[in-house]
């Protein structure tokens, strides 16, 4: 909590990429990924150019490449899917290392792997170089409705409070000898959800009253 702290993926540094206005970074990410997704299949040199561009931005940003590589695990389920594609897709077959695979599946799988990887690296770079507050201000400058940005702001601000509440419940459950092993333990976990919802909702009500008493009229002072 608090203004100076970054979020989970944020990497503190003072590079040119960190200082760049957040709204420009968001637009750059969207345009970059739309170009990547719209690139016709088979244009492999173009993908190499995209990767080179990303590597250049990361080099300027002073974020260590290993920092980003470690956080690329979110991509894993789709790597599995991309690797399966050549085997489940139909159409003309081709031989790769003596195994018969679908040609269209092979191309689609390779393309999915490349675009998804570029997407994850690009998004990670944005997350690593931009603080949550800057991101919200960037969204406001991009004319995202103020109410939506406010909701996002409250979510980001209370995310750690709520997940911490969840963690304390877990500690409380486990210190009473509880471990969830199979569906028979679902009722206990579901009751935790119920308690968490009531606490979150009531916290929302308290926050609203506290804001009202400080002069809130539906807009946040900028």
């Amino acid at each position: 909590m608090g203004g100076a702290h970054g979020h989970q993926l944020h990497f503190h540094a003072h590079s040119r990429v960190h200082r760049a206005p957040a709204h420009l970074k968001i637009v750059a990410l969207v345009v970059f990924m739309l170009v990547v997704v719209a690139t016709p299949r088979g244009w492999w040199p173009a993908y190499a150019a995209y990767l080179a561009l990303l590597v250049a931005v990361i080099a300027v940003s002073h974020v260590p490449p290993t920092y980003l590589l470690k956080r690329m695990v979110v991509e894993v389920p789709f790597v599995v899917f991309a690797l399966l594609l050549p085997f489940v897709a139909t159409g003309p077959r081709t031989e790769v290392l003596g195994v018969s695979v679908s040609e269209s599946g092979l191309h689609a799988g390779a393309r999915l792997l490349v675009t998804a990887t570029l997407g994850v690296i690009a998004s990670l770079t944005l997350a690593a170089t931009t603080e949550a507050q800057a991101l919200l201000q960037g969204l406001t400058r991009l004319r995202v409705p103020s109410l939506l940005v406010q909701i996002m702001g409250f979510m980001v601000r209370y995310l750690e409070v709520v997940t911490d509440e969840l963690r304390r419940m877990k500690v409380a459950r486990e210190s009473r000898g509880f471990t969830a092993r199979d569906p028979r333990h679902w009722p206990v976990l579901a009751k935790s959800f119920g308690a968490l919802f009531i606490r979150s909702y009531e916290r929302g009500e308290r926050v609203h009253l506290a804001m009202l008493s400080r002069g809130y009229t539906g807009r946040l002072p900028s």
Partner: peptide
Amino acid sequence: DRTAPLAGLVAAFVFATQMITFPVA
């Protein structure tokens, strides 16, 4: 005018619930 704080806290709640994993089998 309760929209922003309440929807924000509910969003944080939804995010937190997606973090709990349920053992299946």
